[in-house]
């Protein structure tokens, strides 16, 4: 059976390319100000919007992380497009409720767009034939046949990935990083891992500056990246130097931390106190996830 392309995957594709285009435009605008050749070393600051006020900001971080984490696993278990779309709508509502500027969740969608576009193109073309499924022939090229079942699966993956990626902002950006990590420690994530996340997050920005400076001096000496051995050699030495400098720095960092009283843990100021409202929010998300999954499995539309 030959049919026209359905609307939803095209819409998802358009949204993803739109997000990618947005990202590209932003890059170009930034480069216009700074430099056309310099790569973008900057990492976004995770808790930029932590000082706003919303139901997510007021939520006890421990319960927020635990319940949204469980909810994410319930969402990835969905198997029908209808209920995955419902989860996406819930995530959009959550981003709006958390009062985070849309540029941040859109940047997350743009980061996934390459991987997910590949899925949308490859899976429908290569999926095995299922008896009774709809075949879509792309009109000008009659040899390209899209399998309806493959298209459904690929769209399902894209919708679920977007639904969860959008939730990351209400989850992570609504509390200072230190509080989020303290909540993770309270949820029994090993203290050593929490320490490493906090330090690594800090030093990504420091070493990003270092890398930018080294890259600039390479360009001043006439380096222009090409597809050849000399470029790979230059990058190899560049990375080696970055590692040597970061190792040298670790020693000084550790001594400085010790002299300020570091004994394997950072002092904390926040104490968590969960109110009934916090528990209610946690229960709300988990029950919503269970409802989504139940409806999905019963295939109720």
């Amino acid at each position: 059976m030959i049919i026209h392309l359905p609307f939803f995957p095209l819409l998802a594709l358009a949204a993803l390319t739109g997000a990618a285009a947005l990202q590209l435009r932003r890059r170009r605008r930034q480069n216009g100000q700074a430099d056309a050749q310099e790569p973008d070393w900057s990492a976004p600051v995770l808790d930029e919007a932590a000082d706003r006020d919303s139901p997510f900001h007021r939520w006890d971080a421990r319960l927020k992380i635990a319940s949204l984490f469980i909810y994410c696993f319930l969402v990835v278990s969905l198997q029908t497009l209808t209920w995955a779309a419902a989860a996406l709508a819930i995530s959009i509502a959550a981003v709006m409720a958390s009062r985070i500027p849309w540029s941040r969740p859109l940047r997350r969608l743009a980061a996934m767009s390459g991987f997910l576009t590949m899925f949308l193109i490859v899976v429908p073309l290569t999926a095995p034939a299922v008896p009774g499924e709809t075949l879509i022939v792309l009109d000008p090229f009659s040899s390209l046949i899209l399998h309806g079942e493959g298209l459904r699966l690929a769209t399902l993956v894209v919708v679920k990935a977007c639904a969860i990626a959008l939730l990351m902002e209400p989850l992570l950006a609504t509390a200072p990083l230190a509080v989020t990590l303290q909540a993770l420690a309270a949820l029994r994530l090993p203290n050593a891992i929490c320490q490493m996340i906090l330090l690594a997050h800090r030093y990504i920005h420091v070493l990003g500056h270092e890398a930018r400076r080294m890259q600039r001096s390479m360009r001043l000496r006439g380096f222009a990246p090409r597809t050849d051995l000399a470029t790979l050699r230059a990058y190899g030495n560049f990375l080696g130097m970055l590692f040597v400098r970061s190792f040298d720095r670790t020693q000084r960092v550790f001594e400085a931390m010790q002299s300020r009283g570091y004994r394997g843990a950072f002092p904390t100021w926040t104490t968590f106190a969960a109110t009934p409202a916090d528990w209610a929010k946690g229960a709300f998300w988990i029950i919503m996830g269970i409802i989504l999954l139940t409806m999905d499995r019963l295939n109720l539309c």
Binding site: Q195, L199, Y203, A211, F247
Partner: peptide, 13 residues
């Protein structure tokens, strides 16, 4: 641990 953290960020970069 702090050393591994700093090296981790250099790999990240």
């Amino acid at each position: 641990l702090p050393k591994i953290a700093v090296v981790t960020s250099s790999f990240f970069v």
